[in-house]
Amino acid sequence: MGLSSKTSEKIAFSLLILATLIVAGFVLIILGYIILNGYGAINLEFITQMPNRMMTEGGIYPAIVGTIYLIIGSMSVALPIGVMAAIYLNEYAGESRTTWLIEMAINNLAGTPSVVFGLFGLALFVKYFGFGPSILSASLTLALLILPVIIRSTEEALITVPKEYRESSLALGVSKWQTIRHVVLPAAIPGIITGSVLSIGRVAGETAPILFTGAAYFLPRLPDSVYSQFMALPYHLFVLATAGTNIAKTRPIQYGTALVLLIIVLSLNLVAVLIRRHYRNKLKI
């Protein structure tokens, strides 16, 4: 005899809520652990000063600046290209073998390990184009990494724009591109922003793609051009925790760095949520 529907309902409900609690629990533990261990290291000096005494003292200012440059650099390349490619694929390309191949390629790009992107960036941007290890090379490598995410989320946002909007715009004697520009894209912006934020999180957090393309082990000054090497938060953290001069002594700096990285990503997420809400309110009732 099977379980009564009431019992199976109870079991399913308990399992589902257990799974949710496990997820929420781990998030809280990780956040709590980093905050508890990291907040002591954070002060004005920590976020505004250069590293000091073989990185065992001083701040992480150049790493913060480097990470922000990477975000700006990679997004300003990947966002326009990704959005335009998604518009082409979704609105113009139609269904053909070529389109299918391109879509497959994008999916595979999304699944490629980030260290492979790092090696590719080294070969193409650093060596072949001769950009050297630099902000430019690293930003372009990261842009390639997040391109599939942006394309995919933009396509999904475009698909959810009701067909009726397109039809009624076209029926007013508005061209296809004008329809996309004035009706479809505005309605898709919340979705596009969501995808972009996911990408910003990756750009800020990835270590492997910048490892070979420009991140410096230690560089006590700010980059002065796109061809400069740079420090970045995730790589700085990696260096301190594995290859630093005094791993035990820099523990607080490591947690402080992790916390700063977390704060940057979370506050960018918050900004994106606010922008998205603003657009939703503007579009809906």
Binding site: S168, G173, V174
Partner: peptide, 20 residues
Amino acid sequence: VVDLRKKVGMVFQKPNPFPM
């Protein structure tokens, strides 16, 4: 075609104002 549709307007089955 774009010009034709300026001269021949269409109102659809479901009211479909833009989200503006």
